[in-house]
């Protein structure tokens, strides 16, 4: 006897966001079901980005620097390498704007952003240095330098969103809205941003994920609740989720420790750590994944290929 498949019916969906310029736009979000529940609705394939930094990263271990040998000093060339390695998007991290890492000013980082944008066709994500005050000063200049390229700029927080969103509004970009692993604050930040008249489909939510072994279960449940909120019709929880899996995974001792006998080969271990973090959060409902190591991205895509197959009963 054929079993009847019980289907959940949802009234809401994740906002669909288009990034970049024709003909190289990338579609993010638009899902109408829980992730990979193909029999209940549409799962839009998660997209990947590789991270580029404006200054050569001093704290990256050799196994992470190796795939980018020869381009780490040149963000534009590094971005091209990322596209060759299969990234759908390039995520430029303006680490050099941090006061303890060179303190580059708005004009300097905007020039870097423009050079990177001119080097590749894929859409750009541009993230500041992570210091809220400084990002509020540099991101509007970046927004202007990238006018019309329809990028995603961040991270906007409760403390600096006004300046960042103003730049996005003026020059046609979307915003990465960052909240500290807290669904209530994430929703509130979305409301505040939309009150500035940025359309709700031009926000990506960054939940400040924890990587595997470091609180990933909190990130998982927050992302899952956001998806459930989106599907239930809550427009202030319906923005696609961006996960900075590379940055977070490569902070852990499991990725940083060299080849030691009990833990085995560092590169294999670190790549697995980053890829597992990403796959787990894709299952929770993440839409954009920013990696550091290209092999992690490849492993992630292989798993997503399998998950995108329709279930057969």
């Amino acid at each position: 006897m054929a079993a009847e498949i019980v289907r959940e019916r949802w009234k809401g969906k994740v906002f669909e966001m288009m990034l970049g310029r024709e003909p190289h736009t990338v579609r993010v979000g638009g899902d109408t079901s829980l992730p990979f529940m193909h029999f209940e609705g549409t799962t839009v394939r998660p997209v990947t980005a590789l991270e580029v930094q404006d200054v050569a990263p001093a704290d990256w271990p050799a196994v992470l620097r190796a795939p980018f040998a020869g381009v780490l000093e040149d963000p534009a060339a590094w971005a091209k390498r990322c596209v060759e390695l299969g990234a759908d998007l390039v995520a430029l991290r303006l680490a050099g704007a941090h006061p303890e890492n060179g303190d580059a000013d708005a004009g300097a980082v905007a020039a870097v952003a423009r050079r990177v944008a001119e080097a590749v066709d894929v859409p750009l994500i541009v993230l500041g240095c992570g210091l809220e005050e400084k990002d509020a000063r540099i991101l509007p200049a970046v927004a202007e330098a990238l006018e019309g390229r329809n990028c995603l700029l961040g991270q906007a927080t409760m403390d600096n969103y006004k300046a960042v969103v103003a730049g996005c509004l003026a020059y046609g970009h979307g915003v990465v809205a960052t909240s500290p692993l807290d669904i209530n604050l994430a929703k509130q930040l979305n409301i505040l941003i939309t009150e500035m008249n940025l359309p709700p489909d031009r926000i990506a939510m960054d939940p400040s994920i924890g990587p595997l072994g470091y609180g990933i279960e909190y990130a998982y449940s927050i992302i899952e609740r956001k998806r459930l909120g989106a599907l239930s019709g809550d427009r202030m929880l319906a923005q696609p989720v961006i996960c900075l899996v590379g940055e977070e995974s490569w902070k852990t001792k499991e990725t940083q420790a060299g080849d030691i006998s009990e833990w085995g080969d560092q590169e294999r271990r670190a790549v697995l750590w980053e890829a597992m973090t990403a796959v787990t959060l894709a299952l929770a409902g993440g839409s954009i994944f920013v990696f550091r190591h290209p092999d992690s991205l490849t492993r992630f895509n292989r798993t997503i290929d399998a998950l995108m197959h329709q279930q057969v009963y």
């Binding site: 209530n184 604050l185 509130q188 409301i191 505040l192 202030m236």
Partner: peptide, 9 residues
């Protein structure tokens, strides 16, 4: 889901 602006939303 709670947020500070829940009345307004």
């Amino acid at each position: 889901v709670y947020c500070d602006s829940f009345l307004k939303t």
